[in-house]
Each structure stands twice: as C-alpha cells, then as structure tokens.
Design a binder for these strands. Sequence first.
DNA 1: AATGTCAATAAAAACGTTTTTATTTTGTTT
DNA 2: AAACAAAATAAAAACGTTTTTATTGACATT
Lengths: 354, 354
Amino acid sequence: MSDRSRNSRRSPPTIKTLADLSGYSIGTISKALRGSPVVAPATKEAILKIAEEVGYQANARGMALRTGKTYQAAVLMPVTAVSDYEWDGVEYTQILSGLSQSLEGSEYRMSVLTIRDAEDGLEAARRVVDLGLADGLIFSGILQDDPRINFLVDAGFPFVSLGRCRRELDYAHVDVDNEWASHAATQRLISGGHRRIALINPRSELCYAADRVDGFVRAFEEAGLSASIDLIVGGDLSTRFGRESALDLIERNDPPTAFVCVNESTTLGVLSGLRDAGMSIGSDVDVIAYDDINVSAYFTPPITTFYQPIEVLGRTLGQFLLKRMAGEEPGALKQVFRPKLIARQSDDLGKKQV
Amino acid sequence: MSDRSRNSRRSPPTIKTLADLSGYSIGTISKALRGSPVVAPATKEAILKIAEEVGYQANARGMALRTGKTYQAAVLMPVTAVSDYEWDGVEYTQILSGLSQSLEGSEYRMSVLTIRDAEDGLEAARRVVDLGLADGLIFSGILQDDPRINFLVDAGFPFVSLGRCRRELDYAHVDVDNEWASHAATQRLISGGHRRIALINPRSELCYAADRVDGFVRAFEEAGLSASIDLIVGGDLSTRFGRESALDLIERNDPPTAFVCVNESTTLGVLSGLRDAGMSIGSDVDVIAYDDINVSAYFTPPITTFYQPIEVLGRTLGQFLLKRMAGEEPGALKQVFRPKLIARQSDDLGKKQV
DNA sequence: AATGTCAATAAAAACGTTTTTATTTTGTTT
DNA sequence: AAACAAAATAAAAACGTTTTTATTGACATT
C-alpha cells in the first residue's frame, strides 16, 4: 500500500477519484453532485458521503470548459484619470466590498478590469463578451448615451450598471436619486435665503451631472427664482478641482453665497479654497455635499450632507447581477436610492426647515 | 454557401477552425501560436496570418484546463472591519490600479477576494492554492507573524506581500520604510522642541505598527530623551479613531504637544478632535502624518506629511508577482520605499531642520 | 541500395467536467 | 411467459487546449 497506490496523495480528488471509490460511473457522479433527479436517492447519498470524505471540490477549469461559463463577475473599475494622485473620492473599495458580500454564498468570484473611461470600458466589455472572460458585468460612471450599455443590451449580456443613462432601454441598474438630492440641497439653501448658489458638478457627459443640474434648476423654478446656472462648474472629482473652482467662483462679479458639492473630496477642496480666500464657512458661505464615506462630519466645519453608503449600492448590484446571470429579465432589477439628509453646523437652515 | 457552411458564423474561431482553414493539424497550430521552434518558419507564418485574419483568440478555459494555470492574479482585499462606513484611509483602489498597470501587457488578469482579517486571509489563500483559483497572490496588512506568509512560503506558491513580517523568511515583498519615516517624523518634532509626542498607530499586531514604534523610540533615544511611549495608541485607521484618540490624549495629565499620525484618515480625525477641544494646530500642537492620497494639503491647516503614492507600490507588486509567477526566485524581489517629506504649515520646524 | 538521422507534421491522449446516448435491470402488463 | 415501459446507471462524446508519441519524407551515410 504505497503512498500513491490507490489515488495519488498529491493531486486533489476529481470525479474520477469518486468514480473509482464508489464504483459508479463519472456521469452518475456528476449528476449526483449537481443534484439531478434521475439518480437514485440512495446512490446520491452514498456519493455525496464519499465526496465529503475525500474533500472533493469541483475543478473550476473543467466546469468552465464544459459549460462555457466562467463563474466570474467582472467589474470595470475606472482608474482615476486624475494626475498627481489626487483624491477623487471615488470609493470603489466600497463597491467591491458590497459586491463581494452578495457574491459570497454563490459560486461566483469577482474579477476586476481597470478602464480609463467609458470608451475604454466599451473595449473591455467587448473583450469580456467575445472572449467569455466573465458571465456578468458591473460598471459605473454612466454617460447620458453610454456605449457600454448600448453594446451590452444589444449583445444580451447580463450586466448591472451603477447609474442610468438617458436612453430608453431596458436594463438592470442601481442608482442614487441625484435629481432629488440636488433639488433638496438647493431648496434648503434657497429657503435659507441664498440666491446665488454654486453647483460643483462632475464632468457634464456623465448622466448624473445632468440629473443634478435638473434638480438644481427645478428648486429655483419652484421658488419662482431664476437659477444661478452661471455658477455651475464641472470637472474631475478631485479635491484640487473643488479648491480651484471655489477660488474661481468667489472672485467673480456676483459670487456665490452657498455651494452644493458633488462629493466629499470636492467639498474638502471647496473648504480649503474658501478658507484661503478668507471666507468663513457657515456665515459667509454654506456648503452642502453629497457624502460617500461619511467623512464630512470631521471637516472644518462639519458639513451638512446627503448620505448614501456606497456599500449598500454594491450589495444591491451584486444581488441584481446574480439574478441576471441566472437568466432573470432586467424588468424588476432596478433600484434608485434616496440618500439621507444629515444636517450639521455648516448651514443654519435646519430650524427653518420642516 | 450558406451562413454556417464553412465554419459557423456565430461561435468564435478555435484551433480547429484554423486547422480546417490552413490544412495543418491542431497540434501544429498550437505550437505555431506558442512560437515553438519545431514548426517550420514558413508554416508558422502562414498560420499566424490566418489566425490574424479570422481574429483568433485562444480560449482561456481550454488553456486553463490543459495547463492547470488560471492566468489570474488574485488580490486579497480587506473589507473594512470598521463599522458605520467610516473612512479608514485604506486606498485599495490605488493598489489595484497600480497592479493592473503592471499586469496590462501580460496575459494575466486580476481577481479580487475580500477578506476580513489575516486569519480569514489564510482561508482564502488556502482556497486559492488548493483549488487553483489563481497563479499568484497579493496581499497586505502583514502581521508580525503572518499566517498567510507562513503558509504560502511553505506551499511554494508565488506571492508578493505589501509589508514585511518579522520572521526570517525568504519571500518577495514591497514595503514602506515605516521605521525610517516614523523616526524622521519624531525627530522633526523633537528638534522643534516637543517632548510629549503622541503616536497614532494601527493595531499592534500589524508589523508596521511595531516598525513605527521602533522608529519613534529610536528618535527619542538618539536625542538622549525618554520616549513618550505612554502616548502611543493603536486602533483601526478610521477618522473616528483619530478623533477619539486625540480627545482622550489631550485630557491626560501630561498631554501631548504634537502628534505623529499613521495616515490621512486618522489625521483628519485628530484635527477634528483638537479643534473641538479648543486647541489651535500649529501653535498648540503639531501633527505629522503619513500621506496616502495627497489630501493633507487641503486640511485645516495643511499638514506636513511623508508622502508615498500607493499606486507606485501597486505597480511594483505587479512587476514582482509577474516574475515570481514566471518562476523567478524571491531573492531579488524585495523593495522598501522611503516616503518623501512634504513640509507644510502644520509645524514650524522646516527652518530649524537641515 | 539499404540504413539511419533528422525535420516537419500528424495523430492521439490528456486535462475534468457535463450532457447525450446506450445499456442494463426491474417491474408491470397481457 | 413474453413483451414492454420505466428507472437507474454506464458509456461515450464533447468543450479547446497542450503535450506526447507516431508517422512521413528527405537527406546523408555506409
């Protein structure tokens, strides 16, 4: 009974091993393991027992070749186009974390492809589909007319986007209600007496940039005022951009008295700029930011934010993707989250509000 | 000549397709594509031409099954153990970004496994090795005696760690010279007249926590002073931890007059705490932080930091891993980076220093 | 002219599955 | 008791590669 006599000690057990051990054929083993109803209950039980004993784990490569599936969910992660390693507040870690939570129980693993922009993302998506690199796709940074969504809908490939495009297409997505949040923030400032409000926005191709503009304008319209659209700026989401925008805006003829920022990194920049311009936030200027990682509480001064934990979005993305990969139609796989207002001392509007 | 006459239009070309088209056998095709020297130059050329024409791309699953390789590099990404979605400043996005840059030209892709801690990471590492989920592994958050390193060295599995353990083992790694940076920061503050210096550290099991303590103590010793080791605190890297530590320390009998922080998120918390305690940073207290994503410049006040772009670490990790996966010994694959001092107004020590 | 060597290629086997098709066994019906 | 159906399992084929082994033909050697 040498070490390699029965089945070699070194290499992990395969279906073949189980067949030898149990006396059943490999086909029957496979069916038993997959829980096929054609195999007799007693047989299935015996096979599962042996599999358990020898610690059998299906070989992913064998399965992949046979089924054509990869058991991988791919994520397109934008590598920050911002130079000099500036913080741009895009917390992909949280997305990945939430996603992996949803994938945990399943047989799917997570692979990450880095992309530079949506166009580059289209390339990546094509590779994923053509080469079968993954069974499903997750991505964000959706444009108003997004090439990836167009391509994937057309190809019938399972995906869930973080964000919506403006075309009337049926696809699974998760999003933040940016129009609503922008409206709410702007309204807050308007009812606090502000008339000249700046909107620090992402690049205008991004769909949610437009959503925020919509909400911003609507708030003015509802108050019977004309919106300060000349104070809308768009750019990368870096702290530097926030700072430079603030410094620029404050120099203008009819400068803003309040700011609505897109996220925490730009907010930090705006605060830095206002401070250096000698403004005191909260008296001279109000800032309302969208909050990503709950850090605004520690700014100087603490900032009123609309808070939406990204991890929750990530979890939902994962749940939806699993369903899509299981063949479910996108119809019901759509969810838009409303961030929660967290009022802090950066504005004094709380008491005047409902 | 129907649509599916020659080779079905729909499914991508395989080696078989090329064999039919070229008249050579599939074995020869395979060798030609891999650049084997046994195939005649003219033959190889002809085959490559056809492959190019039909847009042949090797099927990863077929290769994987046959070779046992996955062409995947796995990354163990810690999912923040910090509750309530606090920022902990662990910029894994940057690591992934740098890593993917290095992997770009290669045939390797990147897969991400989330883990809760080093022990959980050991589980993941076992899965990767036993199930052949990847051909190489990257991870960080190294403990003084790290179970993952022990296991992988023993298993002879290719990996590169971000950080070093304290055991004398031969393994590829990339690290920041934390002892040096901590020493330099502490020395700066000492020569600025500070004697009671706080050290905001990560959890003490982490190896680099010990490194920082070492450098901290050495700076005091070299100045002939006794180190303020009672002012060393360790915890998660959240902003909240920084804030609470600062508030706690400042209340003590013999409070610190300066802070050395582990990263930007804790620094932000320390600043927040000090502000609320009524201290003015730069006059009452100095803060020196290690900088991860270059955001300290925008704090109130701007903070002096030791700056090391994480993306560069990620790139190096990738380069080393490729070499390890190609069979290279770990001997030469070790690099320790010294972060760069960026003096800002949070301390007034610049002029007194060399 | 028979033999051996080498280069080039073909053929076959293998990787570990799943799925389709074939075979055996058992039980039921007439 | 023969014929058939159903259930259970076995056998074979297939997925797309790489690698090992076999075959062919050309050429050099004796």
